[in-house]
Structures are given as C-alpha cells and as structure tokens.
C-alpha cells in the first residue's frame, strides 16, 4: 500500500504535471546559471571596451558589440544577474513588509486593522513613482554630501541598494492585502484558538500556527512580484534613475537600445537581444508563478 503523499509531495506532483511551468523552470535555471558564470562563459570582460565598435553578431561576439566595443552577450548575462537580483531583493523586501503588515492588521483586528488597511488603500491609489523618486533624490543628496567626501567608492553600492529597497518598499501593498485576507480566515480556526488557549504568546501563534499556513499563497504571490519588480526597474532605467553605469541591468540595456528603433539605421542586436531576453525571462517567471499557484492551490485537492 502506498503511503499517503504529504501536501508538499502532492504540490510537487501537480507542478510537474504542468509542462509550461516545468520548461519555464528549466529555462530560468539556464539563465540563472549563465548569469552567474557570465564573463567566464564568454571570455570577455563586461566593462572592457574594444576596437570593434557596433559590431553585428559574429562568431566571436555572438550578440554583437556596443558603442565602446564591449561584448553584448557578456553584458546581457551580467545585466541579467543584476535584474534578477533586483527582482529577488525587491520581492523579498515587499515580502517582509507585506507579510508583517498584513499579519499584524488581521491578527490585531478592530480599529488597528481598519487604520492599517486604510493606509494601504491610500498608498495604493497614489502613483508609487512619487515615493521612489523622492527616496532616490533624498539619497542622492545624502550620498553626494557625505559619501563623496569620505567614502566615494561606496556611492555606487549605496545607489544600488537604495534602488533595490525602494522598489521593494513600493511593491508590498498587494502582499499585505492578500496576507491579511488569509490571516483573517485563519484567526478563528480551531487549531489557532487551541494554541492560544494553551497559553502561547501572540508572536508564537503567528510564527508557528499562522505563518506556515499562509506560506503557499505567499510563495505564489512572490513569484508574481518578481517579474513586476524587474519590469519596474527597466521603467526607472528609462527615466535615467535605474542602475548606474558602467554597471548594466537588462533595463538599462533596453533603455539604451530603444534609441535604435529609428528610421535611419537600426542596430537590431542592441535592442533585439536585451528586449528578447527580458521578455522571455518575464514570461518564464509568469509561467512558473502560474504553475505554483495551481500546485499550491488548496482547492485543487477537492
């Protein structure tokens, strides 16, 4: 007799059943691997220029070269690394804030819940670019004032970190709403009440009883936040507020390449490869998110 599969095993089976999601995972794995190996795979330094300016794709440069003669493939891989990092860190920040906010609101309930969620509503209805721009401009002022005088080598790192955190900090609203909805229904379940009756503290109840039960929803939502954050970074790059040169993200590469869409001379590789890679990356992440949702859907077992 077969042992009853655990919920995790059932979820894994359901995920495997969706070919789209599986292929997307394989693709994502390859891209991640490529971006991690990056320069050592192509043999070029992503920031080293060469004589070959604007070379079309050749056997040496598979994706051609840019204005400084830098190998585009290498820059794409390194840029993907940054983009994925933005996605991961941004989504993680959104996750932490959103989960804590949503859990607290629902668990405490009453007026606090009302106030906290009204706050979310208000933020939701304002353009988040406002907060990102204010944050970045404040930080730039700070960094030019103090860091340039004392530790100029930290400016780039600071900007990058700030960008990650700020993007995450404007992406947590949906997470908070979803988590709150889940916790509201869990709060009155027998196992939670039992735990409370046995004298467990609030933190313990939240961490031990509630958190594990909302994990599925959170993972699904997280997988949908990552592509949104990556796209948001590309939008900031277009505004000139993205990753700082000479570093590149997929967003900055596309924003640079967008100028190639002109009637006189199109260096197609400069826009085609970055846009294609971003689109397929986002696509893969969306498919994986959909797959996870089906796999972790509690209703699916019925």
């Amino acid at each position: 007799m077969q042992p009853t599969p655990t919920p995790n095993q059932r979820a894994w089976r359901r995920f495997r059943g969706q070919h789209r999601a599986v292929w997307a995972t394989v693709f994502l794995g390859l891209v991640v691997l490529g971006s991690l190996l990056g320069p050592s795979l192509t043999g070029f330094d992503p920031n080293a220029g060469g004589e070959l300016q604007y070379a079309a794709p050749t056997a040496a440069h598979w994706c051609g070269t840019d204005v400084h003669g830098r190998d585009l493939l290498t820059r794409l891989l390194v840029g993907t690394r940054i983009s994925l990092l933005v996605g991961a860190v941004g989504a993680a920040v959104a996750l932490v804030i959103g989960v804590i906010w949503g859990m607290t609101a629902a668990y405490v309930g009453g007026r606090v819940d009302n106030l906290m969620m009204r706050f979310v509503d208000v933020l939701y209805s304002l353009p988040n670019i406002l907060f990102v721009m204010l944050g970045l401009i404040t930080l730039e002022a700070f960094s030019t004032r103090y860091l340039n005088a004392h530790a100029p080598e930290l400016v780039a790192t600071l900007h990058l970190t700030a960008l990650f955190v700020l993007i995450g900090a404007v992406s947590w609203l949906n997470m908070a709403r979803i988590v709150r909805g889940q916790v509201l229904s869990l709060r009155t379940r027998p196992f939670v009440l039992a735990s409370q009756a046995l004298g467990a503290g609030h933190i313990r109840v939240l961490a031990r009883q509630i958190l594990p039960n909302i994990l599925g929803v959170v993972i699904v939502y997280l997988s949908l936040t990552i592509p949104a954050v990556i796209l948001y970074e590309s939008f900031l790059s277009f505004l000139g507020r993205g990753i700082r040169p000479p570093q590149a993200s997929l967003g900055t590469l596309i924003a640079d390449g967008a100028a190639q869409l002109n009637p006189l001379r199109i260096r197609w590789w400069l826009v085609g490869f970055p846009a294609g890679l971003l689109a397929s990356l986002l696509l893969a992440l969306t498919f994986i998110g959909d797959g996870l949702r089906v796999a972790l859907d509690p209703k699916a077992d019925r």
């Binding site: 730039e140 002022a141 030019t144 340039n148 100029p152 080598e153 780039a156 700082r244 040169p245 000479p246």
Partner: peptide, 14 residues
C-alpha cells in the same frame, strides 16, 4: 577611474 554620474543640480553643486 570611478564614474560618478549626477543629476544636473548635484553636478553643479559638487
């Protein structure tokens, strides 16, 4: 050489 790109205002101030 380390690059320090700046917006117009901070650039002039620096």
């Amino acid at each position: 050489l380390e690059l320090h790109p700046m917006e117009w205002g901070p650039y002039l101030r620096e």
